[in-house]
Write a protein that binds this DNA or RNA. Structure first.
Length: 874
RNA sequence: GGGCGCGUAGCUCAGCGGCGAGAGCAACCGCCUUACACGCGGUAGGUCCCCGGUUCGAAUCCGGGCGCGCCCACCA
């Protein structure tokens, strides 16, 4: 397709690694070599010839220089306009050109830029298009000037062989053109780049043209694989013109409108399938995607590797003349394709005949336009060498006709970009029963879950290819996106914040964790670690016993799974041993406070979990189910119902259905343990709860993995029950605290003496306060109480506990009271400060100010009360 | 060089304008209470990195610093 082209371009190249390979940059201490070039031209004949100085760390590349550049604003540029310099030894004359890529040195601008480059710069840049990517660009910008004025008649002069030795065989015509004052550049031929560098420096020195040798620190790319310093080198590679609007534009416009930072890239029309339908989670990654596309360049897809998809292009170089032109192509069986061609290339879409052909004249790289003339040469000068490239799908016999397949393979991300398509049978989904309809069903899919660095490598390219190739009109109208949501997960690092890697040995193997903690425990912990942040740390410990790495992080997941197991075991024990059973539907209003509270908490959790999953907030999901099971269900609900559940069918129904709901909610995180427990729970029959919608009934034969998801019906949300139960919890905690501080064992059954309103609360809780606080009796506070008592402060009033042996130490009590008063006064001080601030009283919401006043009053009442008690004790 | 994230209890992390700043682990005290010691009850522990600003009010927003880290890099 025209989106692909074979292009000559300097790429970072390392012998043995090939072009376009990953490069790692490392800081090197190098030497800078300011070299003097002597200008030639009118008025340059005196003895004191002026010179321009260029600085380089790679002096040997001067052999390939074809220009010297100066910044247009440099005051010296005017005087040098139109002049040329002569390269010492090589004897080549090269023009001085103006280009604003050149860094203006500080000594010219008079500034102290603080930029190392500007400090080192001489203001003149030697331009070596064959051996530096930026120089290549300059060469392209000034192509005509250089072509005309460079004595070699070339813009690009390649002086190296692929192994980076100096060689005249790769596009260097004037290497021995000059004798006389110049010995000729051929003396360098055959030297390695390092040896050539030394020799060049020596020669410059001998001619008094070496200004200095300066230390210079800069980053140099090294091959990821072979670790040798990379050398930019001209080579022919296949490129995808991703900068074409049909690729980059389609990808840009796929991003949902509100995640766009620039208006120009907002989706153009909502009608175009896929426009605006791609969303990133968390939001910030949309910017990574957007920025990458804003600066996208064409993509080199050729890789010199032994594995991968072979590039499906066959090549033949031949002499084409007016006479044999037609026959050369007919002989290969290509003529009928060419006849049909409706453009410089044919489209892939015409099935087995899909074929693209390019005929390129080697002398100037021009492509023969098949649209203008499908077969016949236009002029007689066609008699020349041509490269014929054929890109084709499926079987062919091109090799019988002297064609050879491209030796390279596709960049792995090119192959990967096709993944949403070719795994679904594309381009011919109907070719087999297995692939029929797959594309329609699974493309687009909902969510792609991946890592940060994959956004550019893979996500972008899947979007581009999917939209381009699924276009129904050859790329005019974009196709849809391959997926709508992209979730970028956090990356796990070790305890020191380093990325886990095999070579460091600081990683953990999931299989080892499964071995030490269990699969569900690992899954739960990982889920809980998946916050919206970028990196999460996991302290890694080596276990000498198993010689494997593990992490204490997973203990939490293991403990949680154990807790679930035990809680379920306990619930089943009670349900199966229940004295009364019923399968009648339970009316909500008939339930106890504790049951209504539990159902309300459950409903709230379902709602929170739904919200979390919808936003890909997996940590919130895990945390919510953790608190629901451990805090609400185990710590409070199970403890509270112990005395009553065996005889209360309604409570049995709440217990069973709440547990059922918890197992369903947890199943995606902990599939194995919930499946096992779910089977047992499903086997217990109780009544349904009115308004509790588990999403569908379950019987033991239906696995949890296909069971419905509980629905968060608003009917079960009960603020009243939650508020009241919270008071119960506070009362229980106050009593427990008092007991612990006076060392009264939990075993001893105490009597609580309380005023009427607290009695009413305990009554409403139906015995739960007694159960949870270890009380035998709750009675009205009046008259004399036998034996020692212990005071419990609750909601600003005093309750008394009796029925224990020890005498409470008055001294200790006084200490406690004093501490409490001190704390209350500190709190009151904070509230006073707020209330004494006129800004707060005037501007803060009225209800908030009132709340503060109420709090202040309550504190004062409590302080007064405790003070009088303290006095009474004294 | 560019982009991004993070500095909150001893450790790993939540919270991201107003409830006395929370959880897990670790610590301390008491419990082998017949679901669970991978547990239960209780306690202690924090100039929310620093300096400014906005605000009645800042861990939370803005600006500047310091420190740590990740990703990308012929481009941003």
């Amino acid at each position: 397709d025209s989106a692909c082209s074979r292009t000559r371009h300097p790429l970072l190249h390392a012998e043995g690694a090939g072009a376009g390979q990953p490069v790692s940059w490392s800081e090197l201490h190098a030497r800078g070599y300011p070299q003097r070039f002597l200008p030639s031209g009118p008025g340059t004949d005196d003895e004191d010839r002026a010179f321009v100085t260029v600085a380089t760390t790679r002096p040997e590349t001067y052999l390939g220089d074809t220009a010297v550049a100066v910044h247009p604003d440099d005051p010296r540029a005017t005087a040098l306009d139109g002049m040329a310099v002569e390269l010492p030894l090589v004897g080549r004359t090269i023009p001085i050109i103006r280009d604003d890529y050149v860094v203006m040195p500080d000594f010219i601008t008079g500034e102290d830029s603080g930029d190392a480059k500007a400090q080192m710069a001489t203001g003149f840049l030697k331009v070596t298009p064959a051996h530096d990517p930026n120089d290549w660009e300059i060469g392209q910008r000034h192509f005509d000037t250089i072509k005309a004025k460079c004595s070699a008649g070339e813009v690009v002069i390649n002086v190296m062989a692929p192994d980076a030795s100096i060689s005249p065989d790769h596009g260097w015509s004037d290497y021995e053109a000059n004798g006389g004052a110049h010995s000729g550049a051929h003396v360098y031929v055959g030297l390695s780049r390092e040896d050539a560098r030394k020799k060049v420096v020596k020669e410059f020195e001998a001619r008094d043209l070496l200004e200095a040798v300066k230390p210079h620190r800069h980053s140099v790319g090294h091959s990821y694989r072979s670790h040798v310093a990379i050398e930019p080198y001209l080579s022919d590679q296949w490129y995808v013109a991703v900068s074409d609007d049909r690729l980059v534009g389609f990808a840009q416009r796929a991003l949902t409108a509100d995640q766009r930072t620039t208006a120009e890239h907002r989706p153009q029309s909502a009608d175009d399938a896929g426009d605006g339908s791609l969303r990133f989670y968390p939001d910030r990654y949309a910017k990574t995607y957007e920025t990458w596309h804003d600066n996208l360049r064409d993509w080199c897809i050729s890789r010199q590797l032994w594995w991968g998809h072979r590039i499906p292009v066959w090549h033949k170089r031949c002499q084409l003349t007016e006479e044999n032109w037609h026959d050369q192509l007919v002989a290969t069986g290509l003529d009928h394709v060419i006849q049909k061609a409706n453009g410089p290339v044919a489209a892939w879409t015409d099935g087995a005949e899909g074929m693209a052909i390019a005929i390129v004249r080697t002398s100037d790289g021009k492509t023969h336009d098949l649209q203008k003339d499908s077969l016949q040469p236009v002029t007689s000068d066609t008699a020349a060498e041509y490269d014929i490239y054929v890109c084709t799908l499926g079987e062919n016999d091109l090799e019988k006709h002297g064609f050879a397949q491209d030796p390279d393979v596709l960049d792995t991300w090119f192959s990967s970009a096709l993944w949403p398509l070719n795994t679904m049978g594309w381009p011919e989904p109907e070719q087999s029963d297995q692939t029929a309809a797959l594309l329609d069903v699974f493309n687009p899919t909902n969510v792609l879950c991946t890592a940060r660095e994959i956004i550019t490598l893979w996500v972008s390219r899947m979007v581009m290819f999917n939209r381009y190739f699924l276009s129904t009109d050859g790329g005019t109208t974009p196709g849809h996106v391959p997926f709508t949501d992209v979730f970028i997960h956090a990356m796990i690092q070790d305890g020191e914040g380093r990325k886990m890697s095999k070579s460091l040995g600081n990683g953990v193997d999931p299989l080892d964790i499964i071995h030490s903690h269990g699969t569900d425990a690992m899954r739960f912990t990982l889920c809980k670690m998946t916050t919206q942040t970028q990196d999460v740390r996991m302290p890694v410990e080596h276990d000498p016993a198993t010689k494997r790495n593990t992490s204490p992080k997973f203990d939490e997941g293991r403990n949680f799974c154990t807790k679930l197991w035990n809680a379920t075991r306990f619930a089943l024990m009670n349900l199966e041993g229940a004295e009364s059973r019923s399968t009648e539907t339970v009316i909500f209003s008939d339930l106890t406070l504790t049951d209504r509270w539990m159902l309300s908490r459950l409903t709230r959790a379902v709602s929170a979990i739904d919200g979390a999953i919808g936003q890909y907030q997996f940590s919130v999901y895990a945390q919510t189910i953790y608190d629901l099971l451990w805090r609400d269900f185990c710590d409070w609900y199970l403890e509270a119902i112990k005395p009553t559940v065996k005889t209360a069918p309604g409570q049995q129904a709440v217990l069973r259905n709440t547990l059922d709901a918890i197992l369903r909610l947890l199943h995606p995180i902990c599939p194995f343990i919930t499946e096992t427990l779910g089977e047992a729970v499903a086997g217990v029959q109780t009544g349904d709860i009115q308004a509790l919608d588990l999403g569908g009934p379950r019987d033991p034969a239906t696995p949890l993995c296909v069971a419905a998801w509980p629905l968060a019906g608003k009917e079960l949300l009960n603020d009243g029950a939650e508020t009241t139960f919270e008071r119960v919890q506070a009362l229980v905690e106050a009593i427990r605290q008092a007991r612990t501080s006076s060392s009264i064992p939990g075993r001893e059954s105490l009597t609580l003496h309380a005023p009427q309103e607290i009695l009413a609360l305990a009554d409403e809780a139906g015995g739960v306060v007694q159960t949870l606080a270890g009380l035998g009796e709750v009675r009205i506070l009046d008259g004399e109480i036998e034996g020692p008592t212990l005071e419990v402060r609750f909601e600003g009033t005093s309750l008394l506990l009796s029925g224990f042996e020890q005498r409470v130490d008055d001294e200790a009590l006084r200490g406690q009271l004093s501490d409490q008063i001190a704390k209350l006064e500190k709190d009151a001080g904070v509230l006073d400060k707020r209330l004494n601030n006129p800004g707060y009283v005037d501007k803060a919401p009225a209800h908030m100010v009132q709340e503060t006043r109420d709090q202040r009053a309550a504190k004062q009442a409590e302080i007064d009360e405790l003070r009088s008690r303290l006095e009474a004790l004294a």
